[in-house]
Amino acid sequence: MTRTLRNLPGYAFLTVAAVLSLFPLYFMVVSATNTSQDVLGSRLTPGTNLLQNVRDLFATADVRSAMWHSAVNAVATTLVALVVCSIAGYGFEIFHSKGKDRLMGVLLLAMMIPFAATMIPLFQLFADMGLTNSTLAVILPAVSTPFLILLFRQSSRNFPHEILEAARLDGLSELMIFARIYIPTMRSTYAAAATITFMAAWNNFLWPKVILVSPQYQTMPMLISNLTSGYVTNYGVLMLAVLLASLPTVVIFLVLQRSFAEGITGAIK
């Protein structure tokens, strides 16, 4: 009890933060159960229009197809990005050298330019290869990001060198050390990286909408964009779609957050 009391300022701070964070989400959930007119009137209590909104949404838009396309793009991007970027981040830090530092500096430049400026040449590149409308074209520009590489590089600073040396003495190859020791040790970093990458890929809008020229490959963000494009927007239906589109990221976070909480004690020692 006294301990809880001593933490009171902490709890108060967290409560304020949580309430502020959750309120817009609450509005989204409640709005999905309300009529368009009620949403516009900022009604804050649950309504009875959820079933009607579900029926209307599924009648006007192919939610299943959009969810599927979004999921394929996001999962593929996340898996490939984790492999490519973690091995690079590991390489940068564990085999640290001046030259690699310089390369990192150069690679960092790649994230400093707004995508709108590089989009046209990139589109041309994929169009020349006949790869428009392909999953490959959606994910390739997103799998190797300086940000993820840097994240793994920075995290690797805390990777204990004694373990590394011990493994080398045991005759493990460098790749095996990475796969068998580094990956399990850095689970929380992987969890953070996976959450962030999945979220970015799932919400990515500009590039998929351009490279997936043919509208039948539409993803959830495009579906939502379509819902607001008509003369009449049904805000209840829109909020339901937005809610559905937010769920996968929330689920991923809930699943992976256990890894954030895991202490180093169990993993290494």
Binding site: V84, I87, G91, K100, L107, I113, T118, I120, L122, S144
Partner: peptide
């Protein structure tokens, strides 16, 4: 070995980012 670990990531960034950046 370290360089080999970097190659896939660096190549992808080269083609997917630097090439369009030069064009820009």
């Amino acid at each position: 070995t370290g360089w080999a670990f970097l190659i896939p990531a660096a190549l992808l960034i080269g083609v997917m980012s630097f090439y369009p950046m030069v064009q820009a």
